[in-house]
Structures are given as structure tokens and as C-alpha cells.
């Protein structure tokens, strides 16, 4: 019979130290399309029609709501001028929903002063209660990956907990289907204060593309107060780590006014 303990020790350390150093594990993985309006010929709106979720709108100029983006890469295949390009911009977590909207017309956003919302007692350790509010299971698959030996979430002092009574953060995936609405709210009500909420995955941010039809959901807006919005379909495990550390004010936000600054 194999000696598993010995095998495990022999295999050595598999964990990355990202984001401090070490690989993020995302080689080749595509993020949100990058947009440079300088390339847009006047009057062109080819990308608008190509987007299956209505993330791109044209009203004189192009506006992209990354909170509706499912990273399908259609727009950049359609764009005739290379204004939209593939990118590795997946660390897209923000504190204000508005920061996911890239509007050409908007004046360059000044850095918004952050009201420090996080209790200092939480900074070292965080307990998460996850709720699937109607996901496709893609987001769960990446959340489960956080516990694999490579990402090893525990190294950051972050844990999943079965009971909302022990949880600091409610992490919600899925568009919030009609049948999950009440159980979701009950879970939040069962949490002690201060309690925080993360909308994880494009579904939970805006409902897209599950936001139409008789069983549509529109994400967490108007249902729960959200502290961190993380679009992505699904967000990869490193993007989840970035979002959690952003919540804990241990890393800076990379996206402001829809613009990603590495």
C-alpha cells in the first residue's frame, strides 16, 4: 500500500507565493478586452452589435461596462481597426460598481478616496461563506481551485466556513435566481456585523447573460450591499485572490474608471 504521507513530502511544495512573488498560474489566460478609442473610425460601432451581453454601447462614443463582460472575445474579433485587443487584464476587482464602466466621454477619473471600510481585526484573517445563487458552476470550480496545493488559500489566512454565523464575508456567485433570492438574504441576515459582501463573476455583478427571460437574475445590485465587485466568466483563482486581498486592503485596486493599470 502506498505511503501517502511520504509521497506528499517527497512531492515538496507546490504552492505559489503570488501575489508577493512567484507565478500567478495564468499564462495564456485571457482577460477583459483592452480598449483604445484612438483607433475607432468615426461612426463605427461594429463591436456593439457583436457583444452578446450588451456590455458595449454607443451613444456618440463607445462605452464598455466590464460588469457585463463575459470575456467571450467576440468584440475584438469583430473590430476592424484593432481598437479592442486581447489582454491579460483579469484582476478586475473594484470597490465601486462605477469603476467597471469605461466611458470615452468621461473626464479622466481622479483617484477616489477610499473610506476605510475594513475593520482592522479582519485584516489578518478572513472567513468566507460562499453562496451559489444560480451559477453555471464555472465560478465554483475556480473557487474550489483556491484550495488546491498551488493556490493554497490558507497561506493567506483566508478560510471558507460552513456557517454564516462565523463568516466575515458573503461571497456570492450566480445571477440570483428567483428561488435563491430568499435563502441568500437569509444567509446574509444570519451573519454577524461587520459583514461584507463580494459579487463574484459577471453573473453576480450584473446578471449577464442570465438577465433575460422568466427566471432572470440581475446580480446583487439592489439586493445586498456589495463591498467588492469582481467580473469575469469565471474569474480565475488568482483574480479571486486579488479580489479578497483588495477587500482586506492588502493590495491596491487595478481598475479605475474601466481602465486597467498593471
Amino acid at each position: 500500500m502506498p505511503n501517502w504521507v511520504w509521497l506528499g513530502m517527497k512531492a515538496g511544495r507546490a504552492a505559489t507565493d503570488w501575489p508577493h512573488h512567484g507565478p500567478d498560474g495564468q499564462e495564456g489566460n485571457l482577460g477583459m478586452p483592452a480598449f483604445d478609442s484612438g483607433h475607432c473610425p468615426p461612426g463605427c460601432a461594429a463591436c456593439v452589435a457583436s457583444c452578446p451581453t450588451g456590455a458595449i454601447t454607443a451613444d456618440g462614443s463607445i462605452t464598455i461596462d466590464y460588469g457585463r463582460c463575459i470575456v467571450c472575445q467576440r468584440c475584438l474579433e469583430t473590430c476592424p481597426e484593432g481598437a479592442l485587443t486581447p489582454s491579460d487584464h483579469w484582476a478586475f476587482a473594484v470597490r465601486e460598481r462605477q469603476d467597471l464602466v469605461l466611458a470615452q466621454s468621461a473626464a479622466a477619473d481622479e483617484e477616489r478616496a477610499l473610506s476605510s471600510r475594513i475593520a482592522s481585526s479582519l485584516k489578518g484573517s478572513l472567513h468566507i461563506r460562499h453562496v451559489d445563487a444560480g451559477s453555471c458552476n464555472g465560478c465554483e470550480s475556480e473557487l474550489q481551485a483556491l484550495s488546491n496545493p498551488f493556490y493554497n488559500l490558507h497561506r493567506l489566512g483566508i478560510f471558507f466556513t460552513p456557517s454564516p454565523r462565523f463568516a466575515d464575508l458573503l461571497l456570492v456567485t450566480g445571477p440570483v435566481t428567483p428561488a435563491m433570492r430568499a435563502p441568500l438574504i437569509r444567509t446574509w441576515e444570519a451573519m454577524p456585523e461587520p459583514r461584507m459582501v463580494m459579487a463574484a463573476g459577471t453573473c453576480a455583478v450584473s446578471g449577464a447573460p442570465m438577465d433575460q427571460g422568466y427566471a432572470a437574475g440581475h446580480g446583487l445590485e439592489g439586493i445586498l450591499p456589495v463591498d467588492v465587485w469582481l467580473p469575469g466568466c469565471p474569474p480565475n483563482p488568482a483574480a479571486f485572490i486579488h479580489a479578497l486581498l483588495l477587500l482586506l486592503e492588502r493590495v491596491p485596486q487595478k481598475v479605475h474608471g474601466g481602465r486597467y493599470e498593471p
Binding site: A14, G25, Q26, E27, G28, N29, L30, V71, Q73, P86, E142, Q144, A145, S147, N148, P149, F150, Y151, N236
Partner: peptide
């Protein structure tokens, strides 16, 4: 789970999506 992760990494390198 580590083997699963390795395959997802290969997926991303091949297709851009895990």
C-alpha cells in the same frame, strides 16, 4: 486537485480559457 489545476493551465495556454 493539483493534476486538475495542471490541465486547466494547459487549457488556458491552448485556448485562452481554463
Amino acid at each position: 486537485t493539483l493534476l486538475e489545476e495542471r490541465v486547466k493551465e494547459v487549457n488556458a495556454r491552448l485556448t485562452g480559457s481554463r
